[in-house]
């Protein structure tokens, strides 16, 4: 999104589509290597791998949504706050009562869709820069939320906790859900007209408009999808944490991390190129880093330094051959 005049070269395209495979391979090598090196071979059995995949869920769901927004050439900084709103709202409405689960889920989906609509409208209609629009909406959401709730609010019933804590045949519902959602997103992007138009808008908004695409509607749609995915992450966190607190999204740094994994996954920050597979691979890399740092006993501060360097290098690995200018 902050790139201008990024020209396509066949080479970057190939590298871009290779990104998911390379990231996947890299993550596997890192994870297996660390497990063998430290002798923690139990991390390689089914339970260990499921634990690794479980680390992907919260970031993964919101990153799938962020992929749509970034593909459209926009960005969403409000997702972390949206996640907090969703988590608190869900557990506050449920108050531990199973019969309140459907209304709570419906309310979260409705509010998150509304937030996405506002984000999209600000950007597409009022032409507010997407960073500022979503930063501002995020601040507004967080302020209202923190003014109303100061701690964990309400609780979710045991039935709803099954979302995060239950499994079928060793595969947690939440992990299966993440991959199902990813498949749905891939289908939306690859097999629908909306998806094709999204790529067109991200690649060249003016060209898309001249070709008769309602670019504003596409942009709003992408933002609604992103906000709803943040709402889903909030629901998952409420289930996993048993309740929602107004800081769960911010503490998770889901805004910047979701952007980082999407871009690491090979989606152009300027929009128009990339996809779901890369994002999932980026999320896997982050989950692997968490697990590997634990296994190797890397302490918290060097972890920060390494993570920063890895983010830059992973993105640089396929941007550095780009022609033209990037700001």
């Amino acid at each position: 999104m902050s790139a201008t005049h990024l020209q396509s070269s066949p080479f970057t395209v190939r590298r871009g589509s290779l990104a998911p495979v390379l990231l996947l391979a890299g993550s596997v090598v890192l994870y297996v290597g660390a497990a063998l090196w430290t002798g923690e071979t139990k991390m390689l059995d089914a339970e260990g791998v499921v634990g690794l995949l479980q680390r992907m869920v919260a970031l993964g769901v919101v990153a799938l949504g962020q992929t749509f927004v970034i593909l459209a050439g926009s960005i969403d900084l409000s997702v972390a706050n949206m996640i907090s709103v969703a988590a608190v709202l869900a557990s506050y409405i449920m108050q531990g009562r199973p019969d309140m689960v459907p209304p709570a889920v419906a309310a979260v989906l409705a509010i998150s869709a509304l937030v996405g609509l506002v984000n999209g409208a600000l950007i597409a209609r009022l032409q507010v820069n997407s960073l500022i629009a979503t930063l501002g909406v995020g601040l507004i959401l967080q302020g209202l939320l923190s003014a109303s709730f100061t701690n964990f609010a309400g609780s979710v019933p045991p039935e709803f906790q099954l979302v995060a804590y239950s499994a079928f045949g060793g595969v947690p519902y939440s992990v299966a859900g993440l991959f199902a959602l990813a498949a749905l997103c891939a289908w939306l992007l690859r097999a629908t007209r909306f998806g094709a138009h999204l790529y067109a808008v991200g690649g060249n908004a003016e060209g898309a408009r001249l070709a008769g695409i309602r670019t504003d509607l596409i942009l709003i749609g992408a933002h609604v999808i992103c906000a709803v995915s943040a709402g889903l992450t909030g629901l998952y966190l409420a289930s996993r944490l048993r309740s929602g607190a107004p800081w769960v999204g911010r503490d998770g740094v889901y805004d910047l991390e979701s952007i980082a994994v999407v871009v690491i996954g090979g989606t152009l920050l300027a929009g128009g190129r990339g996809g779901v597979a890369g994002t999932l691979a980026g999320v896997l890399l982050f989950a692997t880093l968490d697990a590997v740092f634990n296994m190797l006993g890397v302490s918290a501060y060097p972890q920060l330094v390494l993570r920063g360097a890895i983010v830059v290098l992973a993105v640089a690995a396929y941007t550095f051959r780009a022609k033209g200018h990037v700001a």
Binding site: L256, V305, R307, G308, A309, V312, F320, V326
Partner: peptide, 20 residues
């Protein structure tokens, strides 16, 4: 030189500098 968008580049520096 690496053509990394500055949001990502400085996000990386943010993490690394804080860690350092």
């Amino acid at each position: 030189f690496l053509k990394t968008p500055s949001i990502i580049a400085t996000l990386g520096t943010l993490l690394s500098v804080n860690g350092a």
